[in-house]
Nucleic acid binder design. Structure first.
Length: 521
RNA sequence: GGUGGGUUCGUAUAACGGUUAGUACUCAGGAUUUUCAUUCCUGCAAUAGGAGUUCGAUUCUCCUACCCACUACCA
């Protein structure tokens, strides 16, 4: 029994999409559940699409999510570049493994599983155009490989000459003409494909001396002793090629098992989730904020105020379910509960509302102290500094009303400063002489209150006082609330008074009643 | 076009071949509350369509429809 080893192999062509995070997460959960290793490998074999900063972004994003690799990066999150006792399979960037692949490509040619192709990009484009004009699709395989310029059609001497003198040739896989490839997928079960419809994929490019995905992927998974490949559904069509490559190399016995995950779909309409959908519907598509080279900013879950645990929890349940009705899972619980056969085959439409709900749930699970700490910088943005003990009390009262820490300010700003305006609608509704007069008396009662200084005592005293006078509770209280918060909504009066103190209370009452002339009628 | 994959309330999903097809989010209504929010209760809402196998099909088979992916010297 081999030790479980799985890998997440992103291409550093931009920020990591939340679908990519989910793929990484499932890999991680699977590895940890089986006591195995989770490896990060950077697939940067396409030099044209390389984006500076993308690799760091990917590693930082995964770390934010609590997805920590066992191999591939060092303690600072950098990709390990030299083999060591801890990381014997290094380097983990394919661009740094350049020297490894050529001999494998040549091994396949020698064994007759691949051949050299000398067709230029222009020649191939011309072939495609020709086929298209005839209403067909050009496909580089048994149908026409014998009409093209390659080591199958050229003499040995010519081939040698071109190999030595030109630099734009490639190694292509020689796809069998008519063979059923039988495959098994951990999520989808048995799949069969006839090779007739497949093409002779490029495996290695002389121009940059780098392999394409297919070769690099098989060679590295083999060398890194990967036991399960858990990747996106977009790879399913190339699975036959990968099976055939393992066979051609003679690695069938140690071939990893495959699991192809469905895609994350956009919340409305059809198609996969894209950055544009996020911009349009107002939710992030990326875990972290990303600023591209043109300076354009793309929002991230972290910066939008999501807790990483909530983000991960939400993602885990998008396409997988525990088989129970439990919805809230810590990472450890996910590791225990995860199971590949509960992974959904169909694509999952992302639901931004549910993502918010998860964050709300996590927010209320946090301690008042922890949330208060997070609230400090938000307050600072509004120029407010506060005693920490007081802040904890405030947070305790408002956290059930919020989805994000940033909501705290909108919910409870009036606990930190007096209102400057009074909502017109609420004023018109409550600020009437028959309410204002008793309200003033209630205010005096509060100012003179000398009972226990806590919410329950004050509240009880207030209720007794108002009921004893047979005033309309709601209307009178709302008058006072208007004076304290500037609107007809907010915390209970007793809560507010306790938190802002008698002095501030009286000052706000005074101000509101001084303005009474202008706001009454 | 070709190849492969997929299809249960609006969304995420549950349901040994036998259930009044369940749960959560959203939405609507109600109760509680000094307002707002919370909380609680109630409600709306689904097996894509058609054959077949079976005493019985959401579940198994086939066909159709629709959706998705792939079809690069990108991953």
């Amino acid at each position: 029994m081999r030790k479980t080893r799985v890998r997440f192999a992103p291409s550093p062509t931009g920020p990591l999409h939340m679908g990519g995070v989910r793929t990484a997460l499932y890999n991680y959960l699977y590895a940890k559940q089986n006591g195995g290793d989770f490896i990060i490998r950077i697939e940067d074999t396409d030099s044209h699409r390389f984006v500076p900063g993308a690799e760091q972004y990917i590693i930082e994003a995964l770390r934010w999510c609590g997805i920590i690799p066992d191999e591939g990066v060092d303690d600072e999150g950098r990709v390990v570049e030299t083999p060591s006792e801890r990381h014997p399979h290094a380097p983990y960037r394919q661009s740094q493994r350049r020297g490894i692949y050529r001999k494998y490509a040549e091994q396949l040619v020698e064994a007759g599983y691949a051949y050299y192709a000398f067709d230029s990009a222009e020649e191939l484009a011309a072939e495609r155009a020709k086929a298209e004009a005839a209403g067909q699709t050009f496909i580089y395989n048994h149908e026409n490989r014998m009409h093209l310029r390659n080591s199958l059609t050229l003499s040995a001497a010519e081939t040698e000459k071109l190999l030595a003198e030109t630099t734009d040739w490639t190694v292509r896989f020689k796809m069998p003409e008519d063979e059923i490839v039988e495959m098994d997928d951990l999520i989808r079960g048995h799949i069969e494909v006839n090779t007739r419809t497949l093409d002779d994929k490029v495996l290695w490019k002389r121009a940059d001396e780098l392999p394409t995905y297919h070769l690099a992927n098989i060679v590295d998974d083999h060398l890194m002793e990967i036991t399960e490949v858990i990747r996106g559904e977009e790879w399913l069509p190339s699975l036959p090629l990968h099976y055939l490559l393992y066979r051609a190399f003679g690695w069938t016995d140690s071939q990893p098992r495959f699991a192809h995950l469905s895609l994350l779909l956009k919340p409305v309409g059809n198609g996969k989730l894209s950055k544009r959908d996020g911009d349009k519907l107002g939710f992030p598509v990326f875990p972290l904020r990303w600023v591209n080279e043109a300076g354009e900013v793309t929002r991230g879950y972290r910066e939008d105020g999501y807790f990483p645990e909530a983000f991960v929890n939400m993602l885990a349940l998008l396409g997988w379910n525990p088989g129970t009705e439990q919805e809230i899972f810590s990472m450890d619980e996910l590791v225990k509960a995860f199971s590949m056969d509960k992974v959904q085959k169909a694509g999952a439409k992302f639901n931004p509302d549910k993502a918010k709900w998860f964050n709300k749930e996590y927010l209320r699970m946090k301690s008042d102290e922890e949330l208060a700490k997070l609230f400090v910088p938000v307050l600072a943005e509004h120029g407010v500094e506060d005693d920490f003990g007081h802040l904890v009390k405030v947070v305790h009262l408002i956290k059930e009303r919020a989805t994000f820490v940033a909501d705290f300010w909108d919910i409870a700003w009036y606990l930190f400063k007096a209102p400057e305006t009074y909502a017109e609608k609420d004023t018109a509704k409550f600020w009437k002489p028959e309410n204002v007069e008793p309200a003033l008396k209630v205010a005096d009662f509060i100012a003179a209150y000398e009972g226990e200084w806590n919410k329950d005592s004050l509240e009880a005293a207030l209720e007794d006082f108002i009921r004893a006078n047979e005033w309309p509770m709601g209307k009178v209280m709302n008058c006072i609330r208007l004076a304290l918060t500037g609107s007809g909504s907010g915390l209970g009066i007793a809560d507010i008074v306790i938190l802002i103190g008698k002095k501030e209370f009286s000052s706000r009452i005074e101000k509101a009643f001084a303005n009474s002339a202008s706001i009454s009628l």
